[in-house]
Design a protein around this nucleic acid. Structure first.
Lengths: 178, 178
DNA sequence: TCTTGACAGACCACTTTAGACGGTCCATTG
DNA sequence: CAATGGACCGTCTAAAGTGGTCTGTCAAGA
């Protein structure tokens, strides 16, 4: 039995099932498809691709224009993907620097704090808007709910966070709207 | 000007303001105080402590029983902490392996999927319960809302996630309650 | 023709993480 | 009282992840 796949490798195989792609393609696709809950860097992708190819789970295709190197999944790759996707998911991992700062809010300059909160709120509001828009588009395009669950998660999450922003106690917001 | 503090180092200084602690203590405390939105590993803590001590931001105390090495924050350490807490927070970083699997849900065995969803739902339900309980206790103990904002975030987040679990489309849940 | 900018990958120098490992002390219990 | 299980405390390392720079390619427009 070969080494277990890590989650990033598993995700790459998952994307490759739909057809050959280059590392560049994969970075872009991962960013839009799983970017909301999984981060992937360029270096990471190229390293995993090399590794997966060495293990025979993917195959390098013919080099295209601009050194483009497409990879396609092999039958062992599909099997390895199926194995991975059926393993129980690791616990989630959140890192929210804003909350880390807020833990020590007494030491933050009030103006700085208000500004930071307003900025972050705006980011979440924008994300929620984008998610909702995408969800509408997909729904209109006939994409069924079970293919929009991760999007639903994003919408639920961002909505909750906005709610939270809008109910922060006055001492933090300085009695002003964010 | 010395190197900027990373978020973990900042958090450690923040905790150390309340009095001397060992690395072991800090791991435990971080886990309960900021564990919901910031992960800290043992290795990370000991490495940062060594580094902070070298920079003079903390001081090593006398070794206690079982090689226990307490550290205490120095005046420069307090200054560095104040600087750090007033820098603008980095963007948040979520990694949710469950959603990564769910992206490829068609390939997951229905039974496996149901089981996984049920397990994860239970984890979130328990967390929500614990958060709510803690919130009630703190409120009863006279802790003001502005010192419960991170907890409020946790409650908002976990509530939203549970909502999401409870509205998953039937094809995923197999038409059964989780 | 020249220039700009998206495309595509390689490379490097980190930092961070998970978990194995190795000791130490304490309380129980046989 | 000896032994033994478990909590305590820290070190170490392989693997994973990050962020950035560098090099080159091609297409479109000035």
């Amino acid at each position: 039995m070969a080494e277990r796949l890590n989650a990033t490798a598993g995700a790459l195989l998952g994307l490759l099932r739909a057809g050959p792609r280059s590392g560049y393609d994969l970075v872009a696709e991962a960013d839009t498809v799983i970017g909301g809950f999984w981060t992937i860097t360029r270096s990471q992708v190229y390293r995993e691709l090399t590794d997966l190819a060495q293990r025979g789970l993917i195959e390098r295709g013919e080099t295209g224009p601009r050194d483009r190197q497409p990879f396609q999944i092999t039958p062992p790759g599909r099997a390895a993907f199926r194995d991975w996707v059926n393993t129980t998911p690791e616990p989630e991992n959140l890192r929210i620097p804003l909350l880390l700062r807020l833990t020590f809010a007494e030491e933050i300059e009030p103006d700085e704090l208000r500004q930071t909160l307003a900025n972050h709120r705006a980011i979440h509001a924008l994300r929620l808007k984008d998610y909702r828009k995408l969800d509408l588009e997909l729904t209109a395009g006939g994409v069924p709910p079970e293919q929009r669950v991760t999007l639903a998660y994003g919408i639920a999450y961002e909505s909750a966070v906005l709610e939270w922003f809008d109910h922060l106690p006055e001492p933090l917001t300085g009695n002003r709207l964010l």
